[in-house]
Structure formats: C-alpha cells, structure tokens
Design a protein around this nucleic acid. Sequence first.
RNA 1: GGCGAAGUAGCUCAAUGGUAGAGCAGUGGACUCAUAAGCCAUUGGUUGGCGGUUCAAAUCCGCCCUUCGCCA
Length: 599
Amino acid sequence: MTQPVLVAVAWPYASAEIHVGNITGSYLPADILARYHRLRGRDVLMVSGSDSHGTPVTVRADEDHATPEEVYKRYHVGFIELFQKLGLTYDIFTSTHTRTHFDVANKLFLSLKENGYLYTEESKQWYSPAQERFLPDRYVEGTCYFCGKTGARSDQCDHCGHLLEAEKLIDPKSRIDGSTPELRETTHFYLDLEKLEEPVTEFLRERQSYWRPNVIRQSLGQIETSGLRGRPITRDLYWGVPVPVEGWEGKCMYVWFEAVIGYLSSVVEWSRLHDDPEAWHHWWTNQKSRAYYCIGKDNIPFHAIIWPAELIGVGESFDEKMGAADPQPLVLPYDVPANEFMNLEGKKLSGSHNWAVWGLDFLERYDPDPLRYILTVNMPETRDSDWDWEEFYQRNNNELVATWGNLVNRVLAFAFKHWDGAVPIPNELREGDLALLQTIRTGFKTVERYLEAVKLRAALLEAMRLAGEVNKFLDSTGPWFEIKMDKDAAAKSIYTAIQAIDWLKMIFAPFLPHTCEKLHTYLGGAQPIFGQLVTREIEDDLGTHTVMLYEPGESLSAAGEDLWQPFELVPGKAFKQPAPLFKKLDESIVAEERARLGN
RNA sequence: GGCGAAGUAGCUCAAUGGUAGAGCAGUGGACUCAUAAGCCAUUGGUUGGCGGUUCAAAUCCGCCCUUCGCCA
C-alpha cells in the first residue's frame, strides 16, 4: 500500500451529451492527474458516474415520452463509450441510481440528521391537483411579473432574464397538461450551513495558500462577505433517492445534495466489486489520503463549501454506520482545481444551438491524443479559453506532428536503417550527449512540479520544449553527416536521442497515452504502461446498471513502482520499425468543421 | 443595478513592485535523417485611457472605456 490518491471527477448530468468544454473542464484534467499518479506508483482511485437523478432527466423523459431510467441509461452508455475511446482511466464510472449509492446516501443523510445538522421548514410550492403531485419550477410556466411576457418558467423568465419567485408568477399553468396548479404548503429538510460555517471556513483557510484563486474567491471569499444560510436538501419529486425518514414518502433528496455523495458511494461500490468491501477506508478514512476534485467553475460552491460541509457534519457517524469498530472521520478535499469554461470560436458553447464540438462526434473523424493535446494546451485553468478549429489544425501539424511525432520518426527510422533494428552501442558518451540527457533528466523534476501543483498546461508545454531540445541536439551533432565519416560518433548521437525519446515517452504518457503506448511498443516494451478499461453489467434490486472499470492488469504501472524517473536504455536492445505517431491534417478540415457548427 | 474577471506583439497567452517574454504566423539563411518535418537568425509593444503612490508600476490605488461571467 502506497500513498492513496482519490481523483474525484464531476458527475455528468445524464440528460445531455458531452462536448469538448466538459472534457477539458474536468474529465481530461482528472485523467492526466490520475495517470501521473499511477506512474508514480501511488494507489490511485479515479471515480465518477452519471448523475441520473434531478429534474433535467425527468424533463427530458417527458419530452421523449420515456421513463427517467431509460433516459439516464441512454446517456450513460454514451458517456462510457466516449470515455473508453478517449482513454479516461476511471477506476469506476458508475451511476447514482444504484443500491450502493442509495445506501450510502441514506447513511450520510441520517448521520447529518442525528448530529443535528438538519432542520425542517415549511414553504409554498406549486401543486398539480390533476396529477396529484408537486411540480418542479421548470414544469410551471406563466406570465412574468416583471416584463409581462408569457412563457416564463416559474423560476426564471427567459425574456427579461429575471429570476422569479415561483408563487408570484401570473396565471401559472402546468407544462405537462396545461392545468392550473395551486400553491400548497410542503415541508423540507434543510442543511444547517450556518452551524457549519465556522469549521468550513477553517477548512478553507488551511488550504488557501495553494488553491487556485478563483476557487478561493468563490468559496472563502463568498463566506467572508455573505456568510452561509441553510439550504433545502429535499424535494417533492418521485425520481431520486427517497428521504429515509418515516412519514416522508414521496419526497427525494435534492440532487445537488445527493450527487456529490457519489464520490463516496462509488468508492464503496468499487470495493465491493473487487471483493474487498473494506477497501474504501484506504481513500476515505485514512487521513494521509489526498483527494482531488476535478470540476468546472459552475460547481465550485458545491465542492468547496457544501460537500466539505456535509463531510464535516457527518464526522465519524458514517464510518460507524458502516460497522467500523473504531470509527474515523471522512477525508476532506485536498484540492479543488476547478477550471473556467471553454468557448467555441469566440462564442459561448450552447448545446441547444449546436454551437458545440461533441466528444463522440469528434472521435469519429480524429484520434484521441490530438484532442487531449489541444484541450490540455488550451485548458481554461486561469480564465476562459477558446476552441478554434484553425488552432486545432495548426497545433496538430506544427506541434504534435512536427515537433514530437517527427522527432520520434526521424530518430527511430534512422536508427532502424543503420543499426538493423537495435539500439546503437554508444561506448563513451560525449559532453554534448551528457548535457542533453541531463536536460531531460531535469525535465522529470520540472514537469513533476507542475503536475503536483495541477498546472497541466504548463506541464505539457514544458514537455514539448524538451522535445524541441532533442531536435536542436540532432541538428548540432548531425548524425546523418556523422554516419558517413564516423559511425561511432553517429551511434553516440542516436543512442542519446533514443534515450531522450524513451524518457520523454514517460513524461508525455499522462497527456498522450495512446501514442506513448504505441511508441513504447516500438521501443521494445513488452508490457503496456497502463491497464485497460472494461465494462460490466451489475444487477441489484433497483435493476441493472453498466459500470466502466479500470483494470491495471499486467501493466508496468500496476506494480506500485515509481516509473517517473530516467531508467537507462540498454544499448543493443531490439526495437521495431516505427510508423508515424500522429496524422498530419489537411487545411480543408477547418472550413469543413466550421460548416458543421450552428446547424 | 450589485459583485467578479479580463484588456500585454497580427493571433494565443506568460510575466504577483526590479531590464516587457514565449509559441504560432511573417521575413532572411544554412542543412537534408524525418510526416517538405527540424535547426539558426530576425521584424514586431506608449502593456485599453487618464491620474496617483513609489527610487522603480503590465503589476498597487482612484476614475473612465470595452468585453465577458455570476447574482438580484
């Protein structure tokens, strides 16, 4: 057992497809982090799943005349297909509609209740007598009391943009059957955030020095200016996790409260699926465990305030309910490296106007590593960034193909031709050879510092700079010239370059896993660097659900050893004839792809 | 209306009070192992505007302009 690292990834809403903005915002940075820590030999668990509850799913179900379950499953399998193709190494990607999640959510809810952090309050909500149920805000529309336009939702008017108080809406109608709803009293549980304000503030202050400023601003800054107020955590909704209290039938937990519990329940599920039901403690009650939460900026308050508040309020009670003899508190987030948003060709992404680049659609025409590359160098780590097809085309050809892919190809092709498929034997290396190797060796440390600080774009740009150093080295030694005069000198140059490439392979691996794996086989690697993603159907009393699992298998990174270091390349070792790692793109794709937008 | 962010080379961005930089694009050159890739050199800035603090400001403060986001 080594250092536990929990990589907790935002749960996609199972009511919309995933676009490049979602990928660069949370899923891809999570995988880069997870793969890096896997290479370090740490006990990584990367977890997430489909957020299958909540009104977006029921709204979509009503529109499609399907059940919420059918809707969530349709998107869920699409997510898994995308993540497999992209190579996102989720140890488990599951769903919130599982018995394990319901159990864990119940235990968490009851722990908070018993510890005195929940209270109940009455409020007025729209109720449909015809359907005998309360209607969520977006199911009720009427006339806006600000601008007088019809078609306003009861929580917001799309015409004037005002947020509305539901009960003031003029002439309300149900969107389902057009009937007139009435206001009824209803009671809900609230999370007592006022009571938790002090420990949450302390939690944030302890992490203030190394968290991203945007995250601190929206959490600690928010609390310091406005304080915290209680929030309802239940709703009158049939689709979700039922409130586990007698007399509360027909009410479910509010999705913002319940979905984050998935970070815990998915680890419990992973443990059960691996026949080691207590394994979850390693990540969740071991205070040495480091938990990273990879999310987009829209989720900052939930992950930096509310989820820590839930965990603090639960204390040791959850572990106790899980049957621990010596119950421990749950591990609080170590870092919440939230990203800003990615726009598209200068405009905000919009799924409904097809102003988006969809993940699965992209992978129909292009490979995963170029996507990972462009999304990493443009990752919105400090501010909103922009997806631009011209830039994708340029960077693919000028950077991935020309700098890195061509470096690999020119060196291996040359070596294969002149040394018969074996790494040349260099004998004594020259000063310049040693200097280059020292540069790359130092690169491990530099890139490591960036990755530990979750500065992924700086890390990748540094790796590219190192590849450029090898190109410079080749031009200064000129092995194609040396080979004619002094084959031993050429052997030194080429050995040095292959050694550098072999090291860079490991440095690039978290970012560009597919091509690095390919390069690894060219260089004679017998075992793969990383494991594989598989799917399984799981059955419980709620039905079946598909999970995606990461299987380390016989891969190098499965052994728990630190691979993030410059291992010596054995002279004379056999390697394979290389093929280009990346495809050069034709300029015409820019116009073609732009033509697809906005239809 | 309130709060926040951003404005730096043609483009994308870096530079947390100490000589304004990088990549791409542009221009010139030498080379040929390689996916016509790579390498060397080079052009290009009143850091949105005005004022202030300071020995020193892209950076801190005030006002204004522009763009974007969140909230009412």
